[in-house]
Amino acid sequence: MDTIRFNYTDLPIGERAAFELVCARHGFAPTHFDISASDDPDDNSHQSRLLTIRRGGWAQSYHEDTAGHWVRQFETDLNCRFFK
């Protein structure tokens, strides 16, 4: 399982816009977070990735899908102050 480190601007345009909006709503800039991706070990077809978002000593992983549900899960974590 290879892990790829990338910038948030490498996300699909819709997910990138949603990520930027969520960050702004909570007083963050997208650059405050490190994002990496790897193949989803639960997906045998290798169609989805597992995104890991880090800030400081905190990290959370999200299943990336075509609907962008991970952005809503990320915002829920911000609401719970997980990354502060």
Score class of each variant (00 low, 15 high):
residue 17 A to R: 12
residue 57 G to A: 10
residue 11 L to E: 04
residue 21 L to K: 14
residue 60 Q to W: 14
residue 69 H to D: 15
residue 55 R to I: 08
residue 60 Q to Y: 14
residue 11 L to C: 03
residue 47 Q to W: 06
residue 52 T to K: 06
residue 64 E to P: 03
residue 7 N to D: 15
residue 5 R to L: 09
residue 55 R to H: 15
residue 62 Y to Q: 01
residue 62 Y to F: 14
residue 2 D to I: 06
residue 3 T to S: 11
residue 12 P to D: 14
residue 8 Y to R: 00
residue 31 T to Q: 10
residue 22 V to Q: 01
residue 54 R to Q: 13
residue 12 P to F: 06
residue 75 E to W: 05
residue 66 T to P: 01
residue 25 R to Q: 15
residue 24 A to T: 02
residue 3 T to Y: 08
residue 17 A to K: 14
residue 21 L to Y: 10
residue 74 F to A: 02
residue 66 T to G: 11
residue 37 A to P: 02
residue 14 G to N: 12
residue 81 R to F: 13
residue 63 H to S: 12
residue 36 S to D: 05
residue 27 G to R: 04
residue 31 T to M: 03
residue 36 S to V: 02
residue 32 H to W: 01
residue 68 G to T: 02
residue 79 N to W: 05
residue 70 W to I: 03
residue 57 G to Q: 15
residue 12 P to K: 12
residue 45 S to G: 00
residue 61 S to Y: 07
residue 62 Y to H: 01
residue 22 V to M: 02
residue 24 A to E: 13
residue 4 I to D: 08
residue 57 G to F: 08
residue 20 E to Y: 07
residue 15 E to Y: 05
residue 6 F to I: 03
residue 74 F to W: 03
residue 27 G to Q: 00
residue 34 D to W: 00
residue 50 L to H: 00
residue 60 Q to A: 15
residue 8 Y to D: 07
residue 22 V to D: 02
residue 15 E to L: 04
residue 44 N to W: 10
residue 13 I to M: 11
residue 40 D to S: 05
